[in-house]
Amino acid sequence: MPHYESPILVLIDVTPSGAAAPSTAQLIGAAAQLGTPVALVAAPADSAKDAVDSAVAAGAQLVLTTDVDDGPIAVPIVDAMQAAYRTVQPDAVLISNSIAGRDVAGRLAVREHLALSVDAVDVARDDEGIVAHHSVYGGAYLTHSAPTFGTPVITVRQGTIDTRAKSAPEARVEKLTVEPSGAAVAVGTVVEALQIASSRPELRGARVVVSGGRGLGSKENFSLVEDLADELNAAIGASRAAVDAGFIPFPHQVGQTGVSVSPQLYVAIGISGAIQHRAGMQTAKTIVAINKDPGSPIFDVADFGIVGDLFTVVPQVVDALRGRKK
């Protein structure tokens, strides 16, 4: 392997269909802020090619590949990351703060005795080394963390780092030799993809989010949220109350116990804005709230609040947006 200045090892999350996860560009962009991005694609051989191409397009200077079966959970990827870590000897390891990424990050840190920082919203380098930035308690605080010594393993929150690396057409792709650890392992079936009914953007990392709450009153009425989301090309969110009431499935829940979002625009419809909900959205750049109760706490954080009947206001907004497009 040729020498790379300050290599930063990045694990590419690979989807069941063999594509690189949407987090790829931001992880490699973050790595480029710190040094030279080196990516690992550990996936079943027949599906890994697209992910390798995506890593190169996103700016990885070197892509290491290894075949893993898709039955055993986490362990084969940890084994591959361990081999990559020893080969690359990176200044930092960056992994997506996804369900799969957290499993690998935790195990790699234990196995290689490395300091672990989780859920970073940015990474930087100062005089003493690499620092991870965190947004704590729903964005009320910002903290910086760093390892006392050695290479940090950092998980990065999706959709928070805007830096992108230049595509690296001259990148090398090399096969990595991995020695299986033989660690105890659980085995899973092929993942059944979620039924994605539309081409709406994913909630995590979305530029615009339209969320609905208890005020919608029923599952049928939740289509108002969908109408507005489609006009704004937005992802759909919900408060816990709306999820608990069965208006929409859990993956759409925004808040302390759901997804945290930081979009450019967040529109809250019929959401009172309990602390638990605000914790997942108050770092949005601009917040719009529509609610009939003038005392709702959502108005404390809204840049533009409308006290009114959502069943009147939202259709008017949808019509006006449709009119603008004509």
Partner: peptide
């Protein structure tokens, strides 16, 4: 090695903006 906190700051609370009655 351990991870240590090297800085902490509090974000100013978000100020409410315009609130209108429909």
């Amino acid at each position: 090695p351990q991870t240590i906190l090297t800085a902490v700051s509090e974000k100013p609370p978000r100020a409410g903006g315009v609130k209108i009655v429909d």
